[in-house]
Design a protein around this nucleic acid. Structure first.
Length: 891
RNA sequence: GGGGGAUUAGCUCAGUUGGCUAGAGCGUUUGACUGGCAGUCAAGAGGUCACCGGUUCGAGCCCGGUAUUCUCCA
């Protein structure tokens, strides 16, 4: 292994990168949250460029032409799916840090942006001068062209590299390796990768590194990718030249540290080692002694990072969408810890303090959310271990059956059911079966899985057309809905989407009074109108920075000027709830403590919902204090103090509450009512008095450490209180008591009811006992057998059943046959002492079926006891008679 | 958003082509043995079988719907 003189700590590596690009006039920005909001094509940030997507697409203007940062990224689903690889090698990760530098547009004006030349020169300078990587170990690649797309080789890149690298270490690459695309459509362009050969000298002499570039060799790795974005891929597959060119680079911090720290695995760097060591210590093993243990330790250390960062950014494990992805990662870690590290109890959460120590400096959210992260992970672990437990039990059943039937292979359907319905992982199924000398039909399992995937896919197909540009607009849509509920607008672009087989149209205007769903507040509805035709706006959504209006019909005259009108009555209700949410947030923090962090919020016309971190159920007293707090703020009638264009620093200085997992950039807006100040883009009342009244209607848990409060405001709150009052009044009226005696009356009612029920039971019992006595007295005795044949009307089926059981209780040689009429229906009961069943071969079931015909019905039961029912009560006497005769004939 | 499960005593769960007056373990109450505790034994309490509707002579079990929850897929 090559030792580099620097042997830098990961913190220094990161710092040097940012300093270097700062010296090249780049603006350093913080990492965007892992969880992506307002982008239907993306669940998690999976590349450094995600947060700048709108700059590339031209939907919004960059805050600076040159930017650099370190970005936490999660790669676990979609195009880049590495999850099952992670841990088995030394370089795949779910969560990693991407160091990147960007240039946005203006390549023709070198004093601002830049393109290939500078990107390559600086990359070289940083790697060799600052990080002091041996120049002889570096390789570069360039795009070799692609006929199908009609693209020439990227000779510019080749020429720039020639200035610093010998030609034999500059390699042409295919479209797969050297043409970068964001997704099926969107910005794209040729790229140039920098690879480093970290093999020992002996091996390097034997085989040139260039033979191993892009061949998945663990020590010949890509460390930096420089992307030169100059095209837009359309939905039909064609390429369109972009008006301005961009640079987008990404260098994985983990790999870079491996290079600079002279180790042969990302997991041997100071990023992972503390976590691995801690996990090994808890498990009582050593890293590096056993391959299977090592894989498990790598899985655990990697997944722990991914899950912890996601939770800190507000994404909790759950059973769908992005929450489900997080759950799956966590479960994979538990699986490995369970199987290979022998951890049968929750374990991962114990590693959180170590992770926080390693990463907390750069990512303060880990520190402030530590308690929550720990609690959530622990709870999830316990839950999954329970799932595993039931799975193992079910699997044991399967194994038992297989052994009984002498089968060697468990069907894939069986294994799939375990996986699909009970969440029991297939690899564990295989493992346990192998221990029992059985195997599973994997082919069948896979085909079942495929079937399920197909079903899901066909159920959720969304087709999206390309945007059709109506008129050029270089600026972003201006939202004017803070001040106006009506405006004259023009359509800038539109497209058709098909979702669930229904067609919708998405429209973007030059400016709009419609609020697009964000920050929990739902999107506005309303209509647009021109030339006497009006079109309903069903919803307004945000797609990154684009404000998209959703309509069922596309207006005919696209170039017309439209009157846009927001449904103001809904909006007015909504703003009450939004302002109340701010006051609620303030109240929660004041009364419960500063650990309360917003974890989710929904603001609509009818109600508001607020999720926050807190570790126990709110007591009734806390709830009423919070309710009172908010209502006092309402009565104080604080006026709205809104600041629209403030720098983030300034806003925070003024005391504004910023949320983890939210992206803030450039200028922010603050909303203040009295002492409550929040960063917020939503719409609000002019003064808190407008809210009228605030009423909490429910409090519940939604996950470990997260509580939910739902509330209503204004007329809705009044209606709610009136409803509960009239309900109480109605109850009092029925009970004929005054309000202060309600509880007393209800309690005594319950008591009395219980007492009466007991009494009734006793009474019934007494009746049964006395009836039983007379029946036994009246019984005819034939050959030592007591035979009771009797019709008993006016009793419930239940008590007759009791009676029959009572008669035959503890008595031998007894047969009771009872009949009863209920309106136009009839029933029969027959019980035969078990010794008669054995000795005389009497079967109650047979007999009851036979005589059941007479009452026009059927029946059944066991040999000693059977019942029948029918629709002909007039046949009861015949049935009893026939039954008696039949029994006599058998004795 | 689409599939598949689950819901039975305070808790964890059984309940076998519909015949059930619904069971087990743990917990709980009482009593016995022991100087006390632990322990052992015995007896007991505790259930609208999630809810609504249907099929059937009869439904915990079958069918439809609702709610809650788990799980897989997107």
């Amino acid at each position: 292994m090559i030792k580099f003189p620097s042997n830098m700590k990961s913190g220094d590596v990161r710092q040097k990168f940012l300093e270097f690009f700062k010296s090249k006039q780049h603006k350093i920005v913080p990492s965007a949250p892992l969880v992506v909001k307002n982008d239907p094509t993306l669940m998690f940030t999976n590349a450094g460029m995600n947060q700048f997507k709108d700059y590339f697409l031209g939907n919004s203007n960059p805050i600076s032409p040159r930017i650099a940062n370190t970005q936490k990224c999660l790669r676990v689903s979609g195009k880049h799916n590495d999850l099952e690889e992670v841990g088995h090698d030394t370089y795949h990760h779910t969560l990693f840090e991407m160091l990147g530098n960007w240039s946005f547009g203006d390549a023709d004006r070198p004093e601002k942006g830049y393109f290939k030349k500078e990107a390559i020169e600086w990359a070289w300078e940083l790697l060799t001068d600052i990080y002091k990587i041996d120049k002889d170990l570096l390789y570069a690649s360039y795009f070799g062209g692609d006929e199908k797309d009609g693209l020439e080789p990227d000779l510019d890149t080749l020429n720039f590299w020639k200035k610093v690298l010998p030609e034999e270490r500059i390699l042409p690459g295919s479209k797969k390796d050297n043409f970068w695309e964001m997704g099926d459509s969107g910005p794209c362009g040729p790229c140039s990768e920098i690879h480093v050969d970290l093999r020992p000298e002996k091996e390097r002499k034997r085989l040139a590194g260039k033979e191993l570039v892009n061949k998945d060799h663990p020590l010949v790795v890509e460390i930096w990718n420089l992307v030169f974005i100059q095209f837009n891929r359309l939905a039909d597959g064609n390429l369109q030249k972009l008006p301005s060119k961009h640079v987008d680079t990404g260098m994985g911090l983990e790999r870079l540290c491996m290079t600079l720290q002279g180790v042969s695995s990302n997991y041997d760097t100071d990023i992972f080692q503390p976590i691995i060591q801690k996990a090994a210590a808890i498990a009582g093993i050593k890293y590096g002694e056993n391959e299977k243990n090592d894989i498990a330790l790598r899985v655990v250390s990697d997944h722990l990072r991914a899950v912890a960062f996601s939770i800190a950014d507000g994404q909790l494990p759950s059973n769908n969408k992005s929450g489900y992805v997080i759950r799956r990662i966590l479960r994979r870690a538990v699986r490995y810890a369970f199987t290979f590290l022998g951890q049968k109890e929750a374990f991962l959460f114990k590693l959180i303090p170590t992770l926080t120590k390693v990463m907390g400096d750069q990512f303060p959210e880990l520190i402030s959310q530590q308690q929550l992260v720990k609690k959530v992970i622990q709870e999830e672990e316990v839950g999954f271990l329970r799932t595993l437990d039931t799975g193992i039990r079910l699997l044991n059943e399967v194994i038992k059956n297989c052994k009984k039937e002498n089968l060697k292979v468990v069907s894939g359907k069986n294994a799939f059911e375990l996986y699909d319905t009970f969440g029991f992982p297939i690899d564990l199924t295989e493992l346990i079966l192998r221990e029992n000398k059985l195997e599973v039909d994997l082919e069948e399992f896979k085909s079942e899985l495929l079937k399920q995937k197909e079903r899901s896919r066909s159920a959720t197909s969304i087709e999206t057309d390309d945007w059709k540009i109506v008129r050029d607009a270089d600026t972003v849509t201006e939202f004017i809905g803070y001040d106006h509920l009506e405006a004259r607008v023009k359509i800038v672009r539109h497209r058709k989407i098909i979702s669930n087989k229904k067609e919708f149209y998405q429209l973007v205007f030059d400016k709009t009074p419609f609020y697009a769903e964000s920050g929990g507040q739902v999107g506005d509805t309303g209509f647009i109108e021109a030339h006497g035709s009006s079109y309903a706006v069903l919803d307004t959504q945000k797609e990154n920075d684009l404000l998209v209006h959703i309509l069922e019909k596309l207006p005919e005259k696209l170039d017309a000027e439209f009157k846009a009108v927001v449904n103001s009555s809904l909006r007015m209700k909504t703003i009450k709830n939004h302002s109340a949410t701010h006051l609620l947030h303030q109240g929660l923090r004041g009364i419960l403590g500063k650990h309360v962090e917003q974890k989710g919020s929904l603001v609509e016309a009818d109600r508001l919902r607020f999720d926050f971190s807190h570790f126990q159920k709110l007591s009734d007293e806390e709830l009423s204090r919070i309710e009172l707090f908010v209502n006092e703020k309402i009565m104080a009638n604080y006026p709205l103090q809104e600041k629209r264009k403030l720098s983030l620093d300034r806003a925070v200085e003024e005391g504004a509450l910023a949320l983890f997992g939210e992206k803030y950039e450039g200028e922010v807006r603050t909303i203040r009512f009295g002492d409550s100040i929040e960063l917020c883009g939503g719409t609000h009342v002019q003064a808190t008095g407008e809210i009228g009244l605030f009423k909490i209607i429910s409090e519940s848990a939604i996950a470990a450490g997260i509580r939910r409060v739902e509330a209503v405001t204004g007329p809705k709150a009044i209606a709610w209180m009136q409803d509960s009052e009239s309900l109480l009044n109605a109850i009092n009226k029925s009970l004929n008591v005054s309000p202060k005696n309600t509880m007393k009356a209800v309690n005594s009612l319950i008591e009395e009811n219980k007492k009466l029920q007991k009494e009734l039971e006793n009474l019934n019992m007494e009746k049964v006992v006395s009836l039983r006595k007379t029946l036994i007295q009246d019984a005819e005795i034939v050959k030592g057998v007591k035979i009771i044949t009797k019709r008993i009307d006016n009793e419930s089926t239940e008590s007759i059943k009791d009676l029959v059981f009572e008669i035959n209780k503890n008595s031998k040689n007894t047969i009771s046959l009872l009949g009863a009429r209920f309106g136009d229906k009839a029933n029969l009961w027959l019980m035969i002492s078990s010794n008669l069943v054995d000795e005389k071969g009497l079967n109650a079931q047979e007999i009851i079926r036979f005589i059941g015909k007479d009452i026009n019905g059927g029946g059944g039961g066991q040999a000693f006891y059977a019942t029948a029912g029918g629709k002909n009560p007039d046949g009861l006497e015949t049935a009893l008679q026939k039954g008696r005769e039949f029994i006599l004939s058998k004795l």
